[in-house]
Design a binder for these strands. Structure first.
Length: 560
RNA sequence: UGGGGCGUAGCCAAGUGGCAAGGCACGGGGUUUUGGUCCCCGCAUUCGGAGGUUCGAAUCCUUCCGCCCCAGCCA
């Protein structure tokens, strides 16, 4: 009687299914993910490559990884390595099909000569400034370059000499001869090659002319036999140009499909702006846990499956949209809830002495490692006379809705005993520095034989056995939903959140957390998911808060 | 009419002529040794607006409105 969940549907999948049904490209599905190695990948890229790799997987096809490395002034091997690491981290595999647009520089050069011979491309001596001026405006047609009708032989000769390094950087370009009056600016004789003496990460100094992206990209897809070229919306206007090139060349013609790129609330997704955050030291690097980069999220403790699930859930469409960060955090919690072992850790310690507990006595109590996973088993946690509780779990003048510890109240210590608070000790300034409590020996393990109930269960750590640690709490990097939305004359950095990083240097961890390696993820009960940071050492463990647990109490307080 | 796109709930998003899926968020209730998880329930008489076609329209037509992208020898 229950209805089957409706099959996930989106416009790209629909197109692909139709193409398979019509045996287009012999029913073959071959996609590609074509990053430029000029920065680190972010969650927006993840959406894109989850789509391309995902469709390939779903329809038993292939997906290539290709670096569109046509601008050596901005690209580097560091970025190539980082990109590979990030995509692998999300679990995708491209076999031996790792390509580079630079692999095709020779072919591209030959194809450019073909267009020249066909009278469809010419060498232009105009400066950048002149080209811009003659291109016209959105509403006014451009003017033809005075070099537009250069004879084929002269074009061929000049182009070869451009390649041979006979002319200075920027002095000439090769341009496609299309239509200077086109409403689509991309068709107004776009530049195909520029002269640029910059060492290329892969081709070294072999070339001093480099193809423009628009010339290299579509042809690279064609060379690789790509059937479906997925890309973001801003390239919709470029499709007619790619179509034109391939038609002139008569080569294999992939189908380009554009979709809306991901925007996330409180997040910036422009590589240029992320670079600025790194270079101007607003963050501690590309992998700063506050960054939306995949390396940042990995360091922050986001599980790769959470990111894949997120990509799936947000869907894909052509409508520019902004997804609520809460959606991503939901996916992170969902994954971690299933997998993360639980521990107790006190972030902001408040010392508690249990007066009627024998001095020097230690009790090893049994704790469940993961209530969501019986296989995870149990562990022993030491309990003693002096413990730490979370400062936020005590209130001297507690309101009715505050279920935790307060003078005269009894609560349960998780897996341990019921305790009652009898006395609040303060320093000269009136700050609470210690609590004196008594425990009920009959409640060992956390249940009262007489059946009495308590309203709260608190986490705790034995003072004598505690491990000292630093804990880093993160909030959104920006305090505005759309950080790009700025007043005239300002830039996005005005919305940087000054509280995005809070360092707690006096956290107390249960001893079972000793020696955990960077990358280890767990839940600190009642608080959130945390992972060991790369900065962590045996002497000084450092944990990152990945994401908080949902917190109804915090929400209630916020409401007031 | 410079060209190209897009408008379904607070946020994503199915649906493509037969009586508005799902997720997130939000609200309510239950279970609970995490105020977590889990489980119920609620949440668009309406699909940017206005006309029209039709027995019937989010889906077709007309028109209006709004938003996004494009004038790099960046990608």
């Amino acid at each position: 009687m229950t209805s089957e969940p409706t099959e996930k549907s989106n416009f790209i999948r629909t197109i692909i299914k139709e193409d398979i049904a019509r045996s287009k490209h012999d029913g073959r599905i071959h996609t590609r993910f074509p990053p430029e190695p000029n920065g680190y990948l972010h969650i927006g890229h993840a959406k894109a490559f989850c789509l391309s790799f995902g469709f390939a997987e779903e329809f038993h096809g292939l997906c290539n990884l290709r670096f569109d490395d046509t601008n050596p002034t901005k690209e580097s091997q560091e970025y190539i390595d980082a990109i590979i690491k990030d995509i692998k981290w999300l679990g995708f595999d491209w076999g031996d099909r790792q390509y580079h647009a630079s692999d095709y520089f020779g072919t591209l050069y030959g194809w450019a000569r073909r267009l020249i011979k066909a009278g469809q491309a010419y060498v232009c001596d105009l400066t950048g400034e002149q080209i811009r001026q003659m291109r016209g405006t959105l509403t006014k047609a451009g003017q033809p370059s005075p070099f537009r009708d250069r004879p084929v032989d002269e074009n061929l000769d000049l182009f070869e000499r451009m390649k041979n390094g006979e002319f200075p950087d920027g002095s000439r370009t090769l341009r496609a001869k299309i239509d200077m009056a086109a409403g689509n600016m991309n068709l107004r004789d776009p530049v195909m090659y520029r002269i640029l003496r910059a060492p290329h990460p892969r081709t070294g100094d072999k070339w001093c002319i480099y193809p423009m992206y628009d010339w290299a990209h579509g042809q690279s897809d064609s060379i690789e036999g790509i059937t479906h070229s997925l890309c973001s919306l801003e390239f919709e206007d470029h499709r007619p140009l790619y179509d034109w090139f391939l038609e002139q060349l008569g080569e294999h013609h992939p189908q380009q499909i554009e979709f809306a790129r991901l925007n996330l609330t409180y997040t910036i997704m422009s590589k240029r702006k992320l670079l600025k955050l790194v270079e101007d030291k607003y963050v501690h690097g590309w992998d700063d846990p506050r960054m939306p980069t995949l390396s940042g999220m990995r360091r922050r403790g986001y599980p790769p499956m959470a990111i894949r699930n997120f990509s799936e859930r947000i869907g894909v469409a052509k409508k520019p949209s902004m997804v609520d960060l809460a959606m991503l955090e939901h996916c992170v919690r969902e994954e971690l809830n299933k997998t993360a072992p639980r521990f107790m850790a006190v972030l902001k310690p408040l010392k508690v002495v249990i007066d009627n507990y024998p001095e020097g006595q230690v009790d090893d109590l049994e704790a469940v490692n993961n209530p969501e996973d019986p296989e995870a088993g149990t562990r022993k946690v030491p309990f003693s006379r002096e413990i730490y509780l979370e400062r936020d779990d005590f209130m001297e003048d507690a309101p009715k809705k505050f279920f935790r510890l307060a003078p005269g109240r009894e609560v349960r210590l998780r897996y341990a005993y019921f305790i009652t608070c009898n006395e609040v000790i303060k320093d000269a300034a009136g700050n609470i520095i210690e609590l004196r409590c008594t425990y009920d020996p009959e409640t060992r393990g956390g249940n009262a034989p007489d059946g009495r109930k308590v309203k709260a269960t608190l986490h705790w750590v034995s003072a004598e056995h505690a491990i000292d640690a630093e804990v880093r709490l993160y909030q959104t990097l920006f305090s505005k939903e759309d950080p790009e939305d700025v007043e005239e004359g300002q830039d996005f950095t005005v919305h940087l959140n000054p509280d995005s990083l809070q360092v707690l240097s006096d956290a107390k961890l249960e001893p079972n957390l000793a020696g955990k390696e960077p990358g280890f993820s767990c839940q600190f009960e009642r608080q959130g998911y945390f992972c060991v940071d790369a900065d962590s050492t045996a002497e000084k463990p450092v944990f990152n808060r990945t994401v908080t647990l949902k917190d109804i109490w915090a929400r209630m307080q916020k409401r007031e």
